[in-house]
Design a protein around this nucleic acid. Structure first.
Length: 690
RNA sequence: GGCGGUGUAGCUCAGGUGGUUAGAGCGACGGUCUCAUAAUCCGUAGGUCGAAGGUUCGAGUCCUUCCGCCGCCA
C-alpha cells in the first residue's frame, strides 16, 4: 500500500470573515494530518479559499474595492487565523491563483472532450443572489435557498451531462459504502440521486468574476466546478510542468475530503460525476461533520454570539480549543459551544486529570529518584496492580486506534482518559509518597515500580493525544526526557518503551487551571471585538456553518448591514465612542422601523405547531409575516386586530414561507408565552412608532 | 407531503444478533488523602429507557400506532 495521505478541508468562501465554525473543520483536518504524519505517512494537507462568484463581486462592490483586492484581504484573514491556530497545512490554495485557473480550464476541456458538455438554452427561474437555477417554478417564485424572488431568465449556457451518471453513482455508493460518511448522509445522497438527476448548468454569463470558459470567454465557469477542482489543481493537475504532474500522480486521489454537512450534495454527487467524466480517480472517502451551535448566554439576555477562535487562543490556549472541539463534540453531529463548557472541560480533563497526573508523577520522580526514571521491579516488589495498569494501557492503545479509524474522535479521547483515571486511582491506592519516606530496599523497589508505571502510562497517553493537543503533549514529552515528540513513531507505540534511567526535564505545569474569570474575560473580549456591523447568520444567528458557500449567503460586512437573523438576538451595537455599555443611541433606535399593522388573514402553517402565517396591512402595503404565536392565539381571533410590526426587518424564510417583518410581542413567563403588543386607543393602520 | 434519522439520569453520551437489580463521564452533595495545578481518590444522586399497544418465558434492544425534534427531497 502506498504511504501517502492526502486530506483536504473545503475551501472557504471569501464573502465573510472566518469564525470558529471554519476553525472547527480545519482543526479536525489538522489533527488527522498530524496523526498520519506520526504514523509515518507522507501527508499533504490542503486548505484554502474560494474566491469567485457573484457574491464576492458584490461584497467587494459594497466595500468599494476591486474584487481581487477584496478577495486578497479576506483570504489573508483566513490564512492569518490558521497561523494563529498553528495549523500544519501544506498548501493554502486560492481559486484566483493562476495555476488553479489553468487547472479548472483543463478540467472543463476534459469534460468537453469526453463528450459530457453541451451548449443549451435555459429558460426559467433564476436566483441572482445564489446563482441558482430553480427548476419547476413559476415566475416570481421564491428561491428555495434564500427566499428571495427569482427572476425569469433565458440564456445560453454550457451544461454538464449529470444525468448520465445516475447509475454509476448509485453503484459507487453501493460498492464503496465508506465513500460517504456518516451513513445517514450516504442515505440522503443516495435517495437524492435515485430520485433522478438533471443535467447541470456549469457556466454563467451574467457576471464576470470567475474563470473564463476555454475558447468562449463570454462565459465563466460555474463556481462549483471551479471550487471543487481545487482538490486536483492544488497538487498539480493541469500543469505542463513534469514535477507538478508527478505530484498529482503521487497524491491523487484524496484520502479524505472533510466537509460540512451543508455541502454534501456537491461533494458526493457533482464532484464524483465530474471526476468520472474527466477520467480521474475518485476520492477514497468524504466525511461530513455537523455544525457548531452557540448556546445562548444564560447570564444575560439571550443573544446570538459569534465566537472567534482568536479569543479562545488568547485567553486560554490553542490546545484548549482543539481538545474541546474534539472531545466535547460527537464528531458528525451538531455540537454546542459555550465558554462555560470550554472552561469546565479544560479544567476537568486537561488540568485536573492529565496535567495533574504529569505533575505529581514527575515531581515524585524528581524528589525520590533525582529526576531519573526508576527501574520497575521484575519480581519481589511487583503487585498485580502494576500489571493491571499495563494491561489497561495496552487495551487503551488498541481501542483508541480503532475508534480513531472510525472517525469517533470524542470516544477515542474518552478511552485515552480512562487510562489517566486508572493511573490517578492507582497512585492513591499505592501511596508512593508513603514509600518515599522509607529507605529499605523493598520500599525503594516498590516505589520505583509505581513511579515507572505511572510515567509509562503518562507517556502512552501523551503520544496518543499528541495530534489533538500538539503543543502541550510536546511539553509533557520533553518533561519526560523523551526529546522531540514529532520524531516519535506512533505505529510503534506499546507498553514498556520508556527507557530506564531517562533523565527527566524541568517539571512545570502544562495546563494551568482556568478560573471563572477566564470565561468573563473571553466574553468581554468578544463584546469588545464585536463591530457595529452585525454579521448575521442564516439560522437565527445560532449556527456557524463552516464550510460551504451554499449557505454562506450573508451580505458582506457592509456599513449599513441590518439584522437578517433572529430579531431577538441582535447584539447591541458598540463603538468606541458610542453610548455607555449596554445602551444604544437614539440613532440606533431610529434604525428600527416600527409600524401599526392590521391583521387581514391568519392561518396555521402546515407542519409547524407554533407558526401562524399572517397577512398584515401596513397601510401602504400588505405583508406576509410568519410568527411563532400559534400556541397562544387562535388564528380567527387575530383577524382585524391591530399589531406592531418591525417593518424594515430583512425577510427571512420559515418553514418555506417568507416572513417579511416581525410582530412585536411580550415574552411572558418561563415558557416565553407571547402576548401581542397593542394600543388602548385606536390608531390608524401604518402609523409609525417612535 | 415523500424518504431517512432520532428521542436513555441536570448536561454530553454508551448500551452487536432481546435475558439477572439500565451504564460512563461531567456537574451537584457528603467524605478522604496530601505526591500533585484547592488537584486526586471514595460514596450518594433512586432515570415510568418519548407515549400507548403488541410479539415473547423475558424488550431500552423486535413489530404497530401516536407524539416531539432533526436532516434530505418535493
Amino acid at each position: 500500500m502506498d504511504n501517502k495521505f492526502y486530506i483536504t478541508t473545503p475551501i472557504y468562501y471569501v464573502n465573510a470573515r472566518p469564525h470558529i465554525g471554519h476553525a472547527y473543520t480545519t482543526i479536525v483536518c489538522d489533527m488527522m494530518a498530524r496523526r498520519e504524519r506520526m504514523l509515518g505517512k507522507d501527508v499533504f494537507f490542503l486548505t484554502g479559499t474560494d474566491e469567485h462568484g457573484v457574491h464576492v463581486e458584490r461584497a467587494a462592490q459594497a466595500a468599494g474595492k476591486p474584487a481581487q483586492q477584496w478577495a486578497d484581504e479576506v483570504s489573508s484573514s483566513f490564512r492569518r487565523l490558521w497561523d494563529v491556530l498553528g495549523l500544519s497545512y501544506n498548501k493554502f490554495i486560492r481559486t484566483t491563483d493562476a495555476e488553479h485557473k489553468r487547472g479548472v480550464q483543463e478540467m472543463f476541456r476534459r469534460l468537453r472532450d469526453n463528450g459530457y458538455i453541451y451548449k443549451g438554452k435555459y429558460t426559467g427561474q433564476y436566483c441572482v443572489f445564489d446563482e441558482l437555477y430553480v427548476d419547476s417554478a413559476g415566475p416570481g417564485a421564491p428561491c428555495p435557498e434564500c427566499g428571495r424572488p427569482t427572476e425569469t431568465v433565458s440564456e445560453e449556457n454550457y451544461f454538464f451531462k449529470l444525468s448520465a451518471f445516475e447509475e454509476k453513482l448509485l453503484k459507487l455508493y453501493r460498492d464503496q459504502p465508506d465513500f460517504i460518511r456518516p451513513e445517514t448522509r450516504r442515505n440522503e445522497v443516495a435517495s437524492f440521486v435515485r430520485s433522478g438527476l438533471r443535467d447541470l448548468s456549469v457556466t454563467r454569463s451574467t457576471f464576470r468574476w470567475g474563470v473564463p470558459v476555454p475558447d468562449d470567454p463570454g462565459h465563466v465557469i460555474y463556481v462549483w466546478l471551479d471550487a471543487l477542482s481545487n482538490y486536483c489543481t492544488a497538487i498539480g493537475f493541469g500543469s505542463p510542468d513534469p514535477a507538478d504532474q508527478q505530484r498529482f500522480q503521487r497524491y491523487w486521489p484524496a484520502d479524505v475530503h472533510m466537509i460540512g454537512k451543508e455541502i454534501v450534495r456537491f461533494h458526493c454527487v457533482y464532484w464524483p460525476a465530474f471526476l468520472m467524466a474527466a477520467g480521474l480517480e475518485l476520492p477514497k472517502t468524504i466525511v461530513a461533520h455537523g455544525w457548531l451551535l452557540f448556546e445562548h448566554d444564560k447570564m444575560s439576555k439571550s443573544r446570538g454570539n459569534v465566537v472567534r477562535a482568536e479569543t479562545i487562543v488568547e485567553a486560554m490556549s490553542r490546545d484548549a480549543l482543539r481538545y474541546f472541539l474534539l472531545r466535547e463534540i460527537v464528531f458528525g453531529q451538531d455540537g454546542s459551544f459555550s465558554f462555560d463548557a470550554l472552561v469546565q472541560r479544560y479544567n476537568a480533563d486537561l488540568a485536573n486529570d492529565l496535567g495533574n497526573l504529569a505533575s505529581r508523577t514527575l515531581t515524585m520522580i524528581t524528589r525520590y529518584f533525582g529526576g531519573q526514571v526508576p527501574y520497575p521491579s521484575p519480581t519481589e516488589a511487583r503487585k498485580p496492580a502494576d500489571d493491571e495498569i499495563a494491561e489497561i494501557a495496552r487495551r487503551t492503545i488498541s481501542e483508541f486506534n480503532a475508534k480513531f479509524e472510525k472517525f469517533q474522535f470524542s470516544h477515542a479521547l474518552e478511552t485515552a482518559w480512562s487510562l489517566v483515571s486508572a493511573v490517578n486511582k492507582y497512585l492513591v491506592e499505592n501511596e508512593p509518597w508513603t514509600l518515599g519516606e522509607k529507605q529499605d530496599d523493598v520500599s525503594r523497589a516498590r516505589l520505583g515500580t509505581i513511579l515507572y508505571t505511572s510515567a509509562e502510562a503518562l507517556r502512552v497517553v501523551t503520544a496518543l493525544a499528541h495530534p489533538v493537543i500538539p503543543e502541550s503533549s510536546a511539553r509533557i514529552w520533553a518533561q519526560l526526557g523523551l526529546g522531540e515528540i514529532v520524531n516519535f513513531k506512533l505505529a510503534e507505540l506499546k507498553w514498556g518503551q520508556l527507557p530506564l534511567g531517562t533523565k527527566i526535564g524541568k517539571v512545570e505545569p502544562v495546563f494551568p487551571r482556568a478560573d471563572k474569570s477566564v470565561v468573563e474575560k473571553m466574553q468581554a473580549m468578544e463584546q469588545e471585538r464585536r463591530t457595529p456591523t452585525v454579521e448575521t447568520e442564516k439560522k437565527a444567528g445560532a449556527a456557524a456553518q463552516p464550510a460551504g458557500r451554499a449557505v454562506e449567503v450573508k451580505p458582506a460586512p457592509a456599513p449599513a448591514a441590518s439584522a437578517a437573523g433572529a430579531p431577538a438576538t441582535t447584539p447591541a451595537a458598540k463603538a468606541g465612542a458610542g453610548p455607555p455599555e449596554g445602551k444604544i443611541s437614539i440613532d440606533d433606535f431610529a434604525k428600527v422601523e416600527l409600524r401599526v399593522g392590521q391583521v387581514k388573514l391568519a392561518e396555521k402553517v402546515q407542519g409547524a405547531d407554533k407558526l401562524l402565517r399572517l397577512e398584515v396591512d401596513l397601510g401602504s402595503e400588505t405583508r406576509q409575516v410568519v410568527a411563532g404565536i400559534a400556541e397562544a392565539y387562535a388564528p380567527e381571533l387575530l383577524i382585524g386586530r391591530k399589531v406592531v410590526i418591525v417593518a424594515n426587518l430583512a425577510p427571512r424564510k420559515l418553514r418555506g414561507l417568507v416572513s417579511d417583518g416581525m410582530i412585536v410581542a411580550a415574552s411572558v413567563g418561563e415558557q416565553g408565552k407571547p402576548v401581542l403588543a397593542g394600543f388602548l386607543e385606536d390608531v390608524p393602520v401604518g402609523a409609525k412608532l417612535k
